Computed example of a mutant assay.
Amino acid sequence: MENKSENSKATKANQVEDSRIAAVRDLIFGENIQQYNSEFEDVFNRIKALRDETQKNLGESVANLENKLADLESLMDHKFQDLNEDLDKKLADLDDEKADRKKLGKALEKIALMLQE
């Protein structure tokens, strides 16, 4: 019990001493501390505003990049389809040319047979 009462007396004495120190500190540095607190608050508000603006800009940039990637993907698909169509056309033309050679070969064979008769 004695220990508890001694502890509470020591705690009260520390609180009184702390309040006296705080009063002296406020007398000496009161205006400066208020000015510093005001400046710190301004700095914190600026940081918050910049962070919010940065987040907003980052979100817009990501959305812009996503749109550009979607456009690029669409363009690539379109180009791929065009190239496939061109390739199919070229292959069809080659097939026609080969068919023409076959026809030419048969025609030459007929001419050769006619000349032999």
Rank of each mutant, 00 (worst) to 15 (best):
L69C: 11
E31G: 08
I47F: 05
K48N: 02
L69M: 13
F44E: 08
S5I: 13
I47G: 00
R20W: 06
S8Q: 10
N45Q: 06
Q81T: 10
E53W: 00
A112Y: 09
K103T: 07
A63F: 07
D18W: 09
S61H: 08
G30L: 02
S74V: 15
E97K: 02
Y36M: 11
G30F: 05
A63I: 05
K98E: 11
S38M: 13
H78S: 07
S74L: 14
S38Y: 12
K102I: 09
L69G: 04
S38G: 14
E97T: 02
F44G: 03
K4N: 02
T54S: 08
E2P: 00
E17R: 13
D88Q: 13
E53L: 01
G59L: 06
E85H: 14
D52Y: 00
L65C: 07
L108H: 08
I111H: 10
S19F: 06
D82G: 04
G105K: 06
N64V: 08
S74A: 15
E66K: 15
K103I: 04
R46W: 04
N7E: 09
K106L: 03
D96Q: 15
R25I: 10
K68E: 13
L83V: 12
S74T: 15
I111D: 07
L50I: 01
D77K: 05
N32Q: 12
E117Q: 09
D96S: 12
D93Y: 02
L83H: 07
E85S: 13
L87Y: 15
Q55V: 06
L65P: 01
A13N: 14
E117Y: 08
N84R: 12
A107S: 10
E2D: 12
L104F: 02
G59K: 03
F29V: 06
A63Y: 08
L104I: 04
G59R: 04
N7P: 02
K4T: 00
T11I: 07
K102E: 10
E60K: 09
K90R: 08
I111Y: 10
N32F: 05
I21E: 10
K103G: 05
I28Y: 01
A112I: 08
K102N: 11
D100H: 10
K9C: 03
V43D: 04
Q15S: 13
D42H: 11
D18G: 02
V62S: 01
A10C: 07
L115N: 10
S74Q: 15
E60G: 03
A99P: 05
M114Q: 15
K110I: 05
E6W: 00
